[in-house]
């Protein structure tokens, strides 16, 4: 089990695999990811492992400021 934006989700092997399962496109344009509070550069999405219990934040731009 992992946590994505506060909700429980099934395990995924990597950040890239998770984003694909969530329905983000290949490039997931406008999206950034943090694992347990640490920002994961886009270049590491394919290699970044998701251990059980990881807190994943998937964020993007909304209106504000």
């Amino acid at each position: 089990m992992i946590y994505v934006n506060g909700d429980e989700h099934q395990d995924a092997a990597t950040v890239a695999a998770l984003l694909e399962r969530l329905g983000f496109g290949e490039q997931a344009r406008g999206v950034a990811v943090a694992l347990d509070g640490e920002v994961v550069p886009r270049s590491q999405w394919r290699s970044a492992q998701l251990l059980p219990g990881t807190r994943v934040e998937v964020v993007g731009a909304i209106q504000g400021g």
Binding site: N5, G6, L22, G23, F24, R29, G30, V31, A32, E57, V58, V59, G60, A61, I62, Q63, G64, G65
Partner: peptide, 17 residues
């Protein structure tokens, strides 16, 4: 133009940008 960063819903992404 300023924007804020928040958790995203995959079904609603991208439109503002």
């Amino acid at each position: 133009v300023t924007v804020a960063m928040r958790r995203v819903d995959p079904t609603a992404r991208g439109s503002l940008i």
